[in-house]
Amino acid sequence: MAELPNLRRTAQVGQIERRVLMRGTLSLGAVSLLGGCDISDSNAVQGVLAAMSRWNDRVQAALFSGTRLAPVFDERLAVKNFRYNAYYPKQKAPRLDASDYRLELSGLIGDKRPWSVAQLHALPQQSQVTRHVCVEGWSMIGKWTGTPFRTFLERVGADTTARYVGFTCADGYYEGLDMPTALHPQTIMAFQLSDQVLPSEFGFPFKLRIPTKLGFKNPKWVTSITVTNREPPGFWTDRGYNWFSGI
């Protein structure tokens, strides 16, 4: 996989670029579909696809249950050497130093003081053996240990009646969650994978482990959290993937 030229582009630039790109790519796809016919107004078709994706966001939010738990598996089924997956090679994964790491908080949060790794690790923790499902179709069962995100949000006095939680990451990644998913009992800040401190390539000091979402909605190397009523952009959503992406 080639590397993205500029990871820190804004969400808006990504969106404009996507629209331009889709205009170009759609006609090629349409050729293969319709055998030589050209969809004259491919922008309109892309508009329909985007509108359908927004509609699917709403359907998925309605299907989501805040109490229905993702299936949990026997610990023996958990994969020990979990698959590394990102849009860049493992060697380029951020290596954050615990001594100078700070988790920044912003938005509708009462206590916005930053958190150190030691403070995070002192939070109450629980384990889960759940299936990570990638949008590409592969899936893998793993064991993650960490703090229920709800506990953290309550601890910092977040307004849990707000609609969204946004994340930014050390590698330029960004992601957003709907509040019902953020408060789901299996949504955790994972500090461990397979009973080991979360390795650098898997998101040290923590990743959001959300077994009710596709893999790309589980941000790693989280460096800031914001609670907001404006839908936060998502890295892959800006590249055409569905925003809600619940499973």
Partner: peptide, 25 residues
């Protein structure tokens, strides 16, 4: 899902996003 070679240069995604959008529409 469009031209995968173009999509991978711009998005690092071989047109899967587009294909998924088509599929779920």
């Amino acid at each position: 899902g469009g031209d995968g070679a173009i999509a991978i240069v711009h998005h690092n995604d071989g047109g899967v996003a587009n294909a998924i959008a088509w599929h779920f529409a």
